[in-house]
Amino acid sequence: MSQTILLADDDKDDADIFQQALRAVAPTIGFSHVDNGSAIFDYLNNEKNARPTVIFLDLNMPEMNGWQCLAKIKNEKKFESIPIIIYTTSSNPREYEIARDLNAHGLITKPTDPKILKKVLGIVTANLETKQLREAVKEAYLMTRE
């Protein structure tokens, strides 16, 4: 079954870098990108779109912020099972805990070094749709924590 990663991030550069890294590490995995919170729901509710295997969710988006999106997605029966990884520039350890409290699979800090991003995506993609995904995200988090 083909897997897709949905990235919600309003920063175009970050989205490009993410896509490039992903393509380098896991070329068979699909990639979709939205640039704000409500667009996520448009994407998800659109039958034509592939259901994401995982959602990378940026926190600092306009209109709806990442936490609100997270809560909303997890509240909908249809989508609550999709793993969500908070993807943020902030390195505040508190946010890692909040992410866990709100039922995200974890939090990853956006690495500045694309090499590290590739490592991160490598670990995550290797564990998609497995029980080890949470552990993998944690490992990635520790790697990115500066």
Binding site: D13, I17, T89, S90, K110, T112, D113, P114, K115
Partner: peptide
């Protein structure tokens, strides 16, 4: 600090690239 760091982050990222 957050807003100041943002451009720095970009500088770093693209410098790395």
């Amino acid at each position: 600090s957050h807003d100041l760091k943002e451009p720095l982050r970009k500088i770093k990222t693209f410098a790395y690239k």
